[in-house]
Design a protein around this nucleic acid. Structure first.
Length: 372
RNA sequence: UCAACGAUGUUAUUAGA
């Protein structure tokens, strides 16, 4: 069973869900590990209903199974169901509690995260780290630091989170001090420091950091490529991209976005066609590449070609239509959006206001399911 | 022994500055 599980997991992490399922179907005696692997894999690919169906079919459900279905709902945006299941599960271990903490943190509900945290018995580093990050992200750097200082034995992950916390709040000096102070660093630590320099536009320091790093991975390259592009140094970005020993989809997306932002649609498209696979982000970048130059039809066609769109695909297109003055078309697109979430409502509302269609804006506003 | 939790890179909107 162990080797079967390894196979299934291998397929799952590489996105080969069908093979994973086939393997599962052929397997003589799936155990609880197998079931949980499948549930998690389904959820990661957005099949929350299938994941739940699997969970319900399980012959027995242990803490791990319960925790993964909780995480599954949360990953797919069903926060309330996640919470409900968390309350309902027969036993909770630290993984379960920690999952709930980071779920609330990801949903920017710091209060609820804190409540779970306070109620949690036997907190560990994994409980503290997301909370500290959340404080920093919401501008409460002092509180983040206070919690950090309370930790007797911070590990690399927590130290690195603290560097990020300083960097996010623009304190590059403290970020660097922390970097120098910590007992050991790993590649993520180096990358965070690298990104910190990039974010504040210290590209010289970033480049030096990049060269001094003990090793460079995909993230290191992509961080610098993106930064160079952002500061208008497209040539350098491209040179780095070409220099990469390996390129993943994020690296490709980054360089394509760089060309798009520079208005070089033909090279963006050229690279897009050279890629072996596209994900939602790649397509969104292309939609934007067309849209920002006013090629709205092409942008729309790109969206329609996508196997499935996300909020960003729609807002990109709707905003572009509105931006170029096609408010009616923007509205039509909005109406064809499968899920009208707050973001899309706001986008359209904004469009109406900008073009002086205040009556429409008011009607829209009054029909919104919620406001922020 | 294999499964579920924390730190890093790419796309839109708005806000901040």
């Amino acid at each position: 069973a162990v080797s079967w599980n390894a196979m299934i997991r291998g397929y799952a992490v590489n996105g080969h869900l069908d093979e994973a399922k086939q393997c599962f179907a052929k397997m003589p005696n799936p155990n609880s590990v197998t079931w949980t692997t499948i549930v998690a894999a389904l959820a990661e690919n957005g099949n929350i209903d299938d994941a739940k169906a699997m969970f319900d079919k399980m012959p027995e459900r242990n803490v791990v199974a319960w925790t993964s279905i909780v995480a599954a709902y949360a990953q797919n945006g069903h926060l309330d169901e996640a919470r409900e299941l968390f309350e309902k599960m027969p036993h909770r271990n630290s993984y379960s509690w920690n999952t709930m903490i980071s779920v609330y943190v990801q949903n920017k509900d710091l209060h609820e995260a804190k409540r779970i945290f306070d109620a949690m018995p036997g907190k560990n580093l994994v409980s503290w780290t997301p909370l500290i990050s959340a404080y920093a992200q919401s501008g409460h750097l002092d509180e983040a630091k206070r919690l950090f200082d309370e930790m007797p034995q911070p590990d690399v992950v927590l130290w690195t989170a603290m560097i990020k916390a300083y960097a996010e709040n623009g304190n590059i000096t403290e970020a660097r001090r922390t970097f120098d102070l910590m007992p050991q660093r790993n590649i993520v630590t180096w990358n965070v420091m690298l990104a910190a320099y990039c974010q504040v536009g210290l590209l010289r320091d970033a480049t030096r950091q990049f060269e001094e790093m003990p090793e460079r991975d995909l993230v290191s390259y992509t961080t610098v490529i993106s930064a160079e592009a952002q500061y208008g140094r497209l040539e350098r970005a491209r040179a780095l991209f070409d220099e990469m020993p390996l390129r993943d989809i994020v690296a490709w997306n980054t360089i394509i976005a760089a060309y798009s932002q520079a208005g070089n649609l033909s090279e963006a498209r050229n690279l897009f066609e050279k890629m072996s696979t596209h994900d939602v982000v790649s397509c969104n970048i292309m939609i934007d590449a067309y849209a920002r130059l006013g090629y709205l039809e092409e942008a729309k066609r790109e969206l329609e070609k996508m196997p499935r769109q996300d909020v960003i695909s729609w807002t990109t297109l709707i905003t572009a239509y509105a931006f170029f003055g096609y408010v009616e078309e923007a509205k039509a697109l909005f109406d064809s959006t499968p899920e009208k979430n707050l973001l899309a409502w706001n986008t359209l509302l904004e469009a109406n206001c900008q073009h002086g269609e205040l009556d429409d804006a008011r009607t829209l506003f009054e029909n919104m399911p919620e406001w922020d």
